[in-house]
């Protein structure tokens, strides 16, 4: 079998899950023997050049660009994984979900105590993604196949899961790995 192809992205996340990914340390050398990376910040490939086997999604969806990328991942990847709290539940960005998006924008661009915007310019250029009314977890946008909990998920968990998926073996998920606190 040819080497499985992995793609990763960070949507409304902080890249912490990707940092945790890099925390697999020297095992990354083993990993690149086992897999090939396509679109991912890890190799800086910006657009898909082929269909992939596994997609790792960090972060939820807070704007239309996130949705677009997530849907593209769904099209290109056989297996899609929500990777960390923000992808699974919206995480910290979703703290705004109880506040209307109008209030959020007003606070950010007009009323915030550190805001200087005398002309009251609001971000409305066509090039910009449109902000969603709330932050959506990935599985509320597309079908997600697996969820890796953690903020961030531990490097060992990421390694074990990828290793198991690639080799088709079982993965052990002891309580300490999936507990919520």
């Amino acid at each position: 079998m040819s080497r499985p192809i992995i793609a990763t992205t960070s949507l409304a996340g902080c890249f912490g899950c990707h940092m945790s990914f890099l925390d697999i340390d020297e095992r990354i050398l083993d990993l690149i023997e086992l897999v090939e990376f396509n679109k991912s910040p890890i190799d800086d490939i910006k657009t898909f050049t082929k269909d992939c086997d596994i997609g790792l999604i960090e972060g939820g969806c807070c704007n239309t660009e996130n949705i677009h990328i997530l849907k593209e991942f769904r099209k290109k990847c056989k297996i899609l994984i929500s990777f960390g709290e923000c992808a699974i539940m919206g995480g910290l960005p979703a703290l705004r979900n109880d506040i209307s998006v109008k209030e959020c924008l007003a606070e950010a661009y007009l009323d915030g105590i550190s805001t200087v915007n005398k002309e009251e310019i609001l971000p409305n250029d066509e090039e910009l993604p449109m902000i969603l009314n709330k932050v959506y977890p990935c599985h509320e946008v597309v079908k997600m196949d697996y969820h890796l909990p953690g903020c961030p998920p531990r490097a060992d968990l990421i390694w074990d899961v990828l290793h198991a998926l690639i080799l088709g073996t079982d993965v052990e998920l002891p309580y300490e790995v999936v507990k919520y606190d």
Binding site: T64, I67, S100, V101, K102, L105, A106, L122, P123, N124, E126, M130, I131, L132, N133, K134, Y136, H139, E140, V141, V142, K143
Partner: peptide
């Protein structure tokens, strides 16, 4: 097999109205 039920045009309506922008989806 899968339908998230998400309505994108409804989801962007409020922010687009606030910043005075016509939603283009």
């Amino acid at each position: 097999n899968f339908d998230s039920g998400i309505d994108l045009s409804a989801a962007v309506a409020e922010s687009c109205e606030f910043v005075d922008r016509i939603p283009q989806l």
